[in-house]
Write a protein that binds this DNA or RNA. Sequence first.
DNA 1: TATCGGACTC
Length: 551
Amino acid sequence: MPRITVKKIPVLEVYPFENSISAHCCLKLLNFTSNALANQEKYLPDLSENIDIIVSKVKAGASYDEIFHSLMQDQTCNTIPISHNIVSQLLHRFKDDWKSALGIFKWVESHNTYMPLSDSYETMLDILGKMKQTEKMMSLIEQMNNRHLVTIGCIAKVMRRLCGAGKWEDAVTIFDDLHRFGLIKNTESMNLLLDTLCKENRVEQARKIFLELKSCIPPSAYTFNIFVHGWCKVNRVDEAHWSIQEMKGYGYNPSVITYSTVIESYCRHSKFDKAYELLDVMQAQNCPPNVVTFTTIMCYLTKNEEFDEALQIPKMMKLFGCKPDTLFYNALIHTLAKSGRIQEAVDVFEDEMPSFGILPNTSTFNSMIAMFCHHGLDQEALNVLKELQSSQLYRPDIQSFSPLLKMCFKKGKTDVLLGNLLDEMINKHHLSFDLSTYTLLIHGLCRANKCDWAYGFFKEMIDKDITPKYYTCSLLLDEIKQNNNYVAADHIEEPQTARPHERCPLPHRQALEASWRKIVSSLTGTIPDISVKLESKTAEKKIKEYGGSVA
DNA sequence: TATCGGACTC
């Protein structure tokens, strides 16, 4: 049973093959991408059927334990041969739904003929960490440790998520205990810790730790690049330069990465002149800028809306003898799109990239889709999507669809087209919806007067432990209140003729409030009853925000 | 170890 049911409409009714941009480009792509095809995972029909069977047994909103037990007791599921491929696809499918992911993972782990790859363990740790399930994440890594399954990659994921959750001290503890996991403290693991801290803006802590460790663990050139990045990230470029001096003191020359990091920082502050100066220094130091350096500069010029200057970068690059790559072209397409040069962007996508043998990736297609949507060129956008779907080389992701969903709401195409796109996202591509997708959908559906549909998504996100924004809750509540009144009135006057999709099936308010209690409780950690007076000021504020009253 | 998003916000 799919989690959301959307009426199925044949694809061709919605995406007539209208113009030739797509077909044209598709042929070209296929000509020069045949070797990439070899690297793609093969999707065997029985595999995807088996996945569907397992997915259909995973009940939305159930606890991970319930999911685990229902899978354990399921006759059909237990006849399915578990493979690494099936596990990695299932985890990918539930990457924003930790309860389902963990239930399934525990189940596959319990098979005595199957042992998950260390990659799958890493993914599972990451899913828990991302959804701030720190305790679950820590208990999983302990279980892994009992079975000697912890790799440095797992440690890296755990440290990053701990830092992300504000628990950087715990990340340091993990590093201190590294021997407990059968791993050693060396330059590599130290760099991992320092990088994690720096990426979470904890460069000062990283520095202190480094001062303690440097007598026992020799730093590498990477170590100093990590600090250069860390200081730049918190806008302390002086300290970054100081780190470069220190680096030289250790006998390491700054690399193209070191310089590009500083250039990024200059660009972020719109100091493009200083960035250009540094390019010259690099050239003089025999450390010429590379494609990343130029892509960075071009991106920031675009952000600053200095389009003409941004479009000089490809020329400058040629002068430096530097070759473009996929990410450079993605940035260039974005620059052209933002500056309204649609045809030029199409030319780059269709002619220039193929002629230089540069493969697009999903983001390249996404940039084209976003550009066409932004300029109201619906059909062109849909053609690019169609091309992406039929290419066999790439698969659309959530970003491929979001501009199209937005377009549906903007143009009021909330019946056939929206239904069809959602059907493809859910049932064909099995995309995992995140906070921004749910937000976009709920807001759009409320404004389109389809609050029952919006409410379905709302319930689904609550089930997945994705906390809606305040505005989303208040918009939906208003809509439901209004709709209830309307439905009530409608029901009295002409109960037989009301159109089902325009009404809000019965009192959702109670259910909605139950959902709120759940949210409020997760936000405040207090007993979830919105009518009871609560001690904490923050709890009061939150409850008011969520439309509850405080006695 | 540096690009990784491509926009309303509550």
